[in-house]
Design a protein around this nucleic acid. Structure first.
Lengths: 177, 177
DNA sequence: ATAATTCTTTAGCGATCACTAAATAATTTG
DNA sequence: CAAATTATTTAGTGATCGCTAAAGAATTAT
């Protein structure tokens, strides 16, 4: 997971992977089938572990709390030592050759799903009167997601935790009252 | 430029490049030296052409107009057919192996510079009374940049021009008056 | 026109890519 | 315990990677 996280799908060679796992190529293939299947296992582990907070944040009581918690935790997460090189779902395969296209499509679906989850949560917030009726759930979801994604790039650029937390605060100033 | 733009630095093979240019590998090396030098030429052309509007927008008379123009033109740019696969400065080399590290560093420097240019423009706006004194130029620059970067990811995800223009509008609601 | 120079092609370099057959070692089963 | 199964290592596969020497073709300079 860490090798794919740092180097991306194409950038992580089998040599990198087997060295990190302390096994030989044939063992890797016997256990996982191929590089893509291994990546998907690693991705599942990544989603269930390091970035589970994104899903957890949906449980906050209000839409604002959801957005606030998501962005704040993201800022903290991206400035942990292990994730200074960004978010795996974004940078593991943004661009690449044809052989990584299935991976790119999978990551796109994942990102779209995250944005949809947020939209649905905000729609619920509207029906609960927690967001004003003039607020647009899809727009807010797109916005929070964009800030989240921009944070990843800026973390790779070397931004500090304070930088990203301030970015989070700035972004939340748009919140409809 | 288009091959690197679509596939990234590592994802673009010499075969892809020579095929697109209609020449043989040895001609490419005689003309450019190596793959990295060719990438840097293509990157320079990209900056001077397709995304020159980012620099141009700094010439707008007010800070708000700068931000508005930047985000709006970005939304339009990212939904042109040729750039549906994102912005080259972001996705050409976010992650990768050690051999692409100089490219990644170059792109990081470029993104940081863009953010700095924006910050300086906003500082000028403060001194011109065009932004309130309580506004933080660095925070606004980080914010506009993050939205710009998030837009790129969402364009790759398949967002429509209307989606991105609404995102631009939503983001500008934070603007300090 | 001839010589010098530049560019392009042909052909192939060593290295690394993802991946695997066959043999060996370890473990589990009866 | 022996037999069957599973896992690991050894040693390599063909394909592709970025790149280049040498020869031929085109262009430029004299």
């Amino acid at each position: 997971m860490h090798v794919f996280w740092r180097k991306g799908f194409e950038g992580a060679s089998l040599n990198d992977l087997t060295a990190a796992m302390g096994i030989q190529p044939a063992s890797l293939y016997q256990a996982f089938g191929n590089k893509r299947a291994l990546f998907e296992k690693a991705l599942a582990r990544y989603l269930a572990g390091p970035v589970a907070f994104v899903h957890d944040a949906l449980g906050e009581p209000t839409a604002y709390a959801v957005a606030d918690r998501t962005l704040r935790r993201t800022a903290e997460f991206l400035t942990e030592r292990r994730s200074r090189h960004g978010c795996m779902t974004i940078q593991a395969a943004l661009a690449g050759g044809v052989e990584s296209e299935p991976i790119r499509k999978k990551l796109i679906a994942l990102r779209v799903k995250g944005q949809n989850d947020l939209r649905q949560r905000f729609e619920r917030a509207k029906s609960e009167g927690d967001l004003p009726s003039h607020a647009d759930a899809a727009d807010l979801a797109s916005f929070v997601t964009a800030v989240y994604q921009g944070m990843t790039v800026q973390a790779i650029n070397g931004a500090s935790r304070e930088d990203l937390l301030r970015l989070s605060d700035t972004a939340l100033r748009i919140w409809p009252k």
